[in-house]
Amino acid sequence: MKRILLALITTAGLTACGADGEPIRPTAGVGVSVGTGGVSVGGSVGAKSGPVTVGVGL
């Protein structure tokens, strides 16, 4: 799972260089939840360009 997350962050970083047009800004988020079932960790990565946002939640 760490490899997938690292690959997605790397890809988002490379696409943010803006070689062709306006740069795409990478986005990322991490969440921790505590409940009766225990502690769970989640995260998301994505990219934003103008009004359009694309993301993947893990």
Rank of each mutant, 00 (worst) to 15 (best):
M1P: 10
M1R: 06
K2E: 07
I4C: 05
I4V: 15
L5S: 14
L5I: 13
L5P: 04
L5N: 07
L6V: 11
A7W: 08
L8N: 02
L8V: 03
L8E: 00
I9S: 04
T10L: 15
T11I: 05
T11M: 05
L14P: 01
T15P: 00
T15K: 03
T15M: 14
G18T: 02
D20L: 15
P23F: 03
P23C: 01
I24F: 00
R25D: 12
P26C: 01
T27A: 13
A28N: 04
G29C: 06
G29Q: 13
G29M: 07
G29F: 11
V30Q: 07
G31K: 01
G31A: 05
V32W: 03
S33H: 13
S33G: 12
V34L: 14
G35A: 08
G35I: 12
G35N: 15
G37R: 12
G38Y: 13
V39D: 04
V39P: 03
V41H: 00
G42Y: 09
G42Q: 11
G42V: 10
G42W: 01
G42A: 14
G43P: 05
G43R: 01
G43S: 15
S44G: 08
S44C: 14
S44K: 06
V45T: 15
G46C: 00
A47E: 01
G50V: 02
G50I: 04
P51Q: 03
P51R: 07
V52Y: 03
T53V: 09
T53K: 05
V54F: 07
V54A: 13
G55H: 11
V56E: 06
V56G: 10
G57S: 15
